[in-house]
Amino acid sequence: MASAKIHASAATHADGPRPFRPRLPGRGAYAGHHVLARRAPTQWLASVVERSPVLMRWFTAGERVSKRELFGCRMCGQCALPTTGYACPMTCPKELRNGPCGGVGADGRCEVHPEQPCVWVVAHERAVRAGHGDDLTRLQRPVDQRLWGQSSWLNYWQGRDEGMWTEPVEGGRDRGSSILRRELGLTPVGR
C-alpha cells in the first residue's frame, strides 16, 4: 500500500508540472471565490479546523482533490488562482507566476508540452473575458517553498498569504521612474 502510494506520487512528478486546462469555467470560479472569500465565518472555520490535526488533514485532502480535479492543483499552499483567471500557474513547466515565457508557440502551445495550450494564454483569455485582465499585471512575489502541501484556503482565511502580490501595475507617461519603493519592495513572505 505504502509503496504503491510512493510509486504514484513519483509518477506524477516524473516529468514535472504539465499545463492543465481548468475544468471550471471562469465565471463559476470567480463566483466560487466570492462564496469562499475571507470573512468572519470562514476565518472562524479555519481556526476550528486548525485546532484539530485530524480535521486539518481531512480538510487539506478535500482541497487537494477538488482543486486537482478542477484546476490541476499541485498544492503549493499559496494559491494564485484568483489573480490568474483561475488557470493555475504552478502547472506551467517553469512554474511562472508573473506571466508567460517567451517560448510560447505562435498557436499558443506550451513549448515544453506542445500538446497543451500555455497556461498563461488560457489565463489571459479567461481573465480578460471575466473583466479581470488587470489582475495579470500584479507583481507576484516569489513562492515560499515551505508551504507546499499546506491548505492554501486555511492560509488565506487566516490572512497568512497577504502580500503575495501587489496592486496591478499601471502604465502612463507621467509616472516616469517615480516608483514608490516601499510599495514594491520585496519583503519576505510566509512565516
Binding site: 508573473n98 517567451g102 498563461w120 507583481l139
Partner: peptide
Amino acid sequence: VENPFAPPPGFRAHRLLKKAVAGAEFVQTQ
C-alpha cells in the same frame, strides 16, 4: 528580455511593463 511576437498578443507589452516596474532599466527583444 521580452518577446513581442509570442502569444498572448494582448499581454506582451504589459508583461514588459511588469519588468520595468520591477526594476528593468533596459530590455532586449527576441
